[in-house]
Design a protein around this nucleic acid. Structure first.
Lengths: 205, 205
DNA sequence: GTCTATATTCGGATAGAC
DNA sequence: GTCTATCCGAATATAGAC
């Protein structure tokens, strides 16, 4: 049993090495500019291992995608259960995204920037994935509760998160030099004025 | 001379056919999922013509990119010279983008959605291209003229156009069923509240 | 300048030893 | 299960006829 556990652990490590290498290369060079040989070299494993563990290049991307979407979902869930109002929840989402952009740049880049349709044609568009749907529901709940102005939920979502997402894109493209959290208060003050019924609380400006 | 003109015209037509086919296939399937043979078939020309006229697959993309960026630049210039205030200019930009998204879907998709860095590594990022820079200058002018709230120009740009760009992405991804112009008044009313000093004029709500 | 036929490279995938 | 060596198809690019 001991040996089995150790073996399973080693297998998990190999899987993680492959996924880490894939994330790095996919975000840096793009999916199509990354060959299986590149991943194999970067991860320090053999081609055979990649095929045994995943089944091919696309399967690696799919597993990576699932892992990161799951991660995002956990983040959103944690926020939803920690905060009660639409304002606090939405602000926390932006705060976390800004933080992640600095600390887990590649994760954010892969989730937001990559054109998954091009290499994962069977996956639904990222906008209809669980975490994104939960964000929209979060906003709908805010409207129903009278905390956000009554408006089309898509428009509300675009107004709430559009500016922040734009900032993230600009940062990832190297157009913004300063870390995004520096902009959080200013950006959120303006974003929330668009959609919120009540203004941003004093302490958060 | 007559024959030369006619010949030149025919060459131009072939070039346009190739660019049209490339735009269509690149936006529908993505750059890397489109082979030269696909373009050749779609355009109804030979591979030799593509190499003679452009030089290869990447060169086609480059020419296409330049053409569309030039197009966008003309659009922005026309708006800048037609309207005087920051409000009118920015609103006109959003209006034109929404219109274009419906009528020239592929052009907008290629410009906004495509990851040009992946297949045109030598081109600067789209955000630093002429039309985008002009948009930012437009906003800076609005701030200097006291028509927009004093704030970081990147934040201002993100707040002004972020929501609209988000809507365009959602529309291109099929998440929004109605044509974007239907949302223009509502979206702009909220967007401008974020950045404008004076409210949106009565007639445009 | 356009076309068809061909060459060459590259990368995804497999076979078989360990 | 992992690894190395190999295969094979696809796609870019070229050569040469017209």
């Amino acid at each position: 049993m001991r040996a089995n556990r150790k073996k399973a652990l080693r297998n998990q490590l190999i899987r993680d090495d492959i996924l880490d290498a894939a994330l790095h290369l996919y975000t840096r060079d793009g999916y199509f500019n990354t060959s299986i040989h590149d991943i194999q070299r970067e991860a320090g494993v053999s081609i055979g291992s990649i095929y045994n563990n995943f089944g091919g290049k696309e399967a690696v991307a799919k597993a990576l995608y699932g892992q990161l979407v799951g991660h995002m979902e956990n983040v959103v869930d944690a926020i939803a259960s920690k905060h009660a109002t639409a304002h606090d929840r939405c602000r926390a989402v932006v705060e976390v995204l800004f933080d992640m952009t600095e600390r887990e740049t590649e994760t954010v880049g892969f989730i937001l920037n990559a054109k998954h349709k091009e290499f994962l044609p069977d996956e639904p568009p990222i906008c209809s994935s669980q975490p994104f749907v939960k964000l929209r529901d979060m906003i709908q709940a805010g409207i129903d509760a009278g905390q956000m102005r009554p408006m089309d939920p898509w428009v509300a979502a675009a107004c709430t998160f559009g500016p922040a997402l734009r900032m993230i894109h600009l940062r990832l493209d190297g157009m913004i030099a300063a870390p995004l959290p520096d902009y959080l208060d200013e950006l959120w003050l303006h974003s929330w004025r668009t959609v919120g019924v009540d203004p941003v609380p004093e302490g958060l400006r």
